[in-house]
């Protein structure tokens, strides 16, 4: 049995310990906001937070997150803003993504938003070099210029 929390909900699942967290989320829990991109941690589309840290779920066996607190894109706003009735429905990163019209096809953006959120948690004032080093997510549409602009808007704010 695998035991962990996803977006504040406790789960106890009968799945193989080596099943990647990505497929537990998508195929067992129906949490499809986390995306399958490459299966080998090369693209970052599957990024979730495990105990607050960016983790590529496609190569993370579920046994590695035993007892952990997992946040997916669906639960990010609640994790960041809390569950009070008047809590904003979007995080400031998500709002910046709308303000700067960052996503195109959007498929990589769940992972991108999770990675950027973690980056800003650890480094509230990242330089361009920090951004380059920390964000290796692939976006085939080419949203990266706007990702940088949106992050800069959060840094200077």
């Amino acid at each position: 049995m695998a035991n962990f929390r996803v977006n504040g909900v406790e789960y106890r699942l009968d799945v193989e310990p080596e099943m990647p967290l990505l497929w537990v989320l998508r195929d067992e829990l129906g949490l499809t906001g986390t995306k399958f991109g490459c299966g080998i941690a090369a693209c970052g589309a599957c990024t979730v937070h495990v105990n607050g840290s960016s983790t590529r779920s496609c190569v993370t066996p579920v046994q590695a997150v035993e007892g952990a607190d997992i946040t997916t894109i669906e639960g990010l706003a609640e994790a960041v803003n809390g569950t009070a009735p008047d809590a904003p429905a979007l995080t400031r990163v998500q709002q910046a993504w709308i303000d700067y019209q960052v996503p195109q096809c959007g498929y990589c953006q769940s992972g991108m938003v999770m990675a950027v959120t973690d980056l800003l948690n650890n480094n509230p004032n990242p330089s361009d070099a920090d951004i380059d080093r920390s964000l290796s997510n692939i976006c085939r549409c080419g949203s990266t210029p706007r990702v940088r602009k949106a992050i800069r808007s959060l840094v200077s704010a």
Binding site: I73, E74, Q109
Partner: peptide, 13 residues
């Protein structure tokens, strides 16, 4: 764009 920042956008997959 709004559904693409919170995971609610539905793709074929």
């Amino acid at each position: 764009i709004p559904p693409k920042v919170n995971g609610s956008a539905q793709y074929g997959i």
